[in-house]
């Protein structure tokens, strides 16, 4: 399973990104990511998830997950992240920071 993750925007406008191939990860780490993706119902999420409340300077997340011939990209505002997706975004943000 391949995961491309980009956090953009925010007041600072800094780009934070990580590309992951779960084959390259330790088993436990790969299993955790695959579980977070499954739990989020990732392949059923809308491609664009926007905040209805407007606002400015929120982060914007863009995730692409490719697995077994299918691929799905979701772009979501920080203000509109579905609860089920948040643990995955939190983990990928940490990985992008090298944590």
């Amino acid at each position: 399973m391949k995961i491309d993750f980009v956090r953009s925007g925010g007041f600072a406008g800094l780009r934070l990104a990580v590309n992951v191939d779960t084959q390259d990860l330790p088993d436990a780490e790969a299993a955790l990511l695959e579980k977070l993706i499954r739990d989020s119902g990732f392949f059923d999420l809308a491609e664009h998830i926007k905040s209805p409340s407007g606002g400015a300077d929120r982060f914007e997340y863009r995730l692409t997950v490719s697995e077994g011939g299918r691929s799905h990209t979701v772009t979501v505002s920080e203000a509109a992240v579905p609860e089920g997706l948040r643990p995955l975004i939190d983990r990928l943000t940490e990985m992008a920071k090298g944590l």
Binding site: S53, G54, G55, A56, D57, R58, F59
Partner: peptide, 30 residues
């Protein structure tokens, strides 16, 4: 939190991570 934002109703400021960013209220232009 490395950010400050307007949520449509109010201003919101993070403390920064301390490593790269200080608290976001420190600059009046923010």
């Amino acid at each position: 939190y490395d950010n400050a934002f307007w949520n449509g109703e109010q201003m919101v400021y993070g403390d920064g991570d301390g490593q790269f960013f200080n608290r976001f209220t420190i600059s009046i232009d923010v």
